[in-house]
Design a protein around this nucleic acid. Structure first.
Lengths: 333, 333
DNA sequence: CTGTTAGCGCCTTCAA
DNA sequence: TTGAAGGCGCTAACAG
């Protein structure tokens, strides 16, 4: 079924069919209705492939993510897909894995599909080994990084103030009387750098000594890190983690070490994921607004695709999700 | 940059360029090398859009899922994407949500993109409100259901023996001395029906009375269900859940009711997801092999795409992931 | 082994 | 307002 078939049956030319199909150009009311009737009765589905070839509009976008099994990434990808679908775009998802090795391949695939835009989920993509191929290959389509901004003219970004969010979280711990607070990072990204900076600022503001650790981004990683921390820093009374999953691991280690949470050690994660409600005790977490990140990214992309003017950067601020691993807030919060 | 540009620069015709591009037809070694050189130097990326229009091979597939944020679905989608990518296909994902309302729209979008195949993740798609539009619209491309089989000639499926897996799990509980075992289902799907059947078979085989409950597919749902169960069935000593997430909720309710797990009540989930290691105590779970499901589905699709003969159905069997919410296995396992 | 030539299904001037 | 005609970039006979 092609527009030729429709045109013949409606007794018009394909140009007219095309016009009613995408509401472009002037079409007489009568002919429009006649054509539309045929369109409906035939259950006609236009070929985006042909449309794409002729107009360069493929109505598709690509989403590059490290691993969609990660709740963090899947919730952003979900919002992107839903929002783009609402605007008539289909979403191609790519799971890159932990290294940039397959990045070029995926970008070439997306380009060969002539996607109209590309999303990058996560600040890893700001690292040079990723950023370089991106700048090199993606000069002609809008690019939006979720939680970051690439240095290229066609790039847009949504930035979450994780530095401030973490600072506020640590300030909160301090306000609750915690003094020996450690921070555990788990990935070499801008995002983690910002969180760390927030932690350092809060500690510095109160003249407190910092204690930091690095670990693998996994339950076991967080477990090890926390175990090491409490072993080497006996008086520790709080730990701020850069990820919920590592924080959950931390919870396990603390429990194993005979420490009570939050009485002896308070714990805070980051991402405010489902994990927070699943672990015991329920994990308090810095909420970096994944849902809003995803939606904002998609909306920014849509604006770019429609060449609507809009800010290059969308800024979001974190919230704090208080649960059971931190002290109840002081009076008046 | 098109094959015309390449052809001109290499001093050959576009047909030759096309041939070396997809290794079809005979091409002299010398010319092949010459063309290839130009291809490389120009960083040429063929347009799958044009290829798709000319050959109907778009090198893309669609994945319909209820909600990719669900770990269950995302791990299958992940495996599908990775496996398809390995075969040169891009994956378009669609999050349908809990009702079939938007199904037709998504199918039309996929069809207009002329995807070469479609995956359905989850046995919900076997329910008639879903199955009907699928049969109606998807007669011309291979369709594979992950954990189910649709009744149409071009459909393939991977089936996990969840009935048997659940039966084995319950048998295991019985072998450990449990007698008053309840089962909690959480979605109106074939999958849950099978699990329930397995439970019933095991109970019947030992002349035990069944106790079943239904709940929302969420932490709170499982929590409520378990709370109700222990309230109304005081002697309960084990609960088999159809999902990890509801089992985790159950854990919370049992703890709140002052019951110890597994001493007083043993608990088993299903899916063997990351949740199992995050909750406390760690959840034992029926492992329905999500990874293998995803991979098998993709491999089945690839076979269909290449018109390679292969079984219409791939059958997988469950395993059991023993953790802390069930008794240690009896000697000799 | 290589080139010529139709399409594939649709968009988009340009005329009428 | 409507139609005719030339691409878009590539594949696939069909000739040579």
């Amino acid at each position: 079924m092609t527009i030729y078939d429709i045109a013949r049956e409606a007794g018009v030319s394909i140009a007219t069919v095309s016009r009613v199909l995408n509401g472009s150009g002037k079409v007489g009311e009568r002919t429009r209705r006649r054509v539309q009737a045929v369109l409906d009765s035939q259950q006609y589905i236009p070929s985006r492939v042909a449309q794409g070839l002729a107009s360069r509009q493929t109505s598709s976008v690509g989403v590059l993510t490290v691993d969609i099994r990660d709740v963090h990434h899947s919730s952003i990808a979900y919002m992107i897909e839903q929002t783009m679908a609402g605007a008539g775009y289909s979403t191609i998802v790519c799971n890159l894995g932990g290294t940039p090795a397959r990045l070029r391949g995926y970008l070439r695939a997306l380009l060969s599909h002539r996607v109209n835009g590309v999303f990058f989920v996560g600040s890893v993509f700001l690292n040079e080994p990723y950023a370089q191929p991106i700048r090199e290959l993606l000069a002609d389509v809008p690019v939006v990084v979720v939680n970051g901004l690439l240095d290229m003219p066609n790039a847009y970004g949504v930035l979450v103030n994780e530095c401030e969010g973490t600072r506020a979280s640590v300030e909160r711990l301090i306000a609750a009387g915690r003094r020996r607070i450690a921070m555990v990072c788990s990935s070499p990204t801008r995002s983690d750098e910002n969180k760390l900076r927030g932690y350092e600022q809060a500690m510095a503001a109160h003249g407190l000594e910092t204690v930091t650790a690095q670990c693998a981004r996994s339950l076991a990683g967080g477990e090890e890190a926390a175990a090491g921390l409490v072993r080497e820093h006996p008086g520790l009374d709080a730990i701020q983690f850069a990820e919920d999953i590592t924080a959950v691991g931390g919870l396990r280690a603390l429990s194993a070490a005979g420490l009570r949470v939050p009485q002896d050690v308070a714990v805070v994660g980051c991402n405010n994921s489902t994990y927070c409600d699943i672990c015991t005790p329920r994990l308090s977490s810095v909420d970096n607004r994944l849902v809003e990140q995803g939606r904002a990214a998609a909306e920014r992309m849509i604006a770019a695709l429609q060449k609507r003017p809009a800010a290059r950067v969308v800024r979001l601020s974190c919230a704090f999700a208080a649960r059971e691993t931190t002290d109840a807030p002081a009076h008046g919060e």
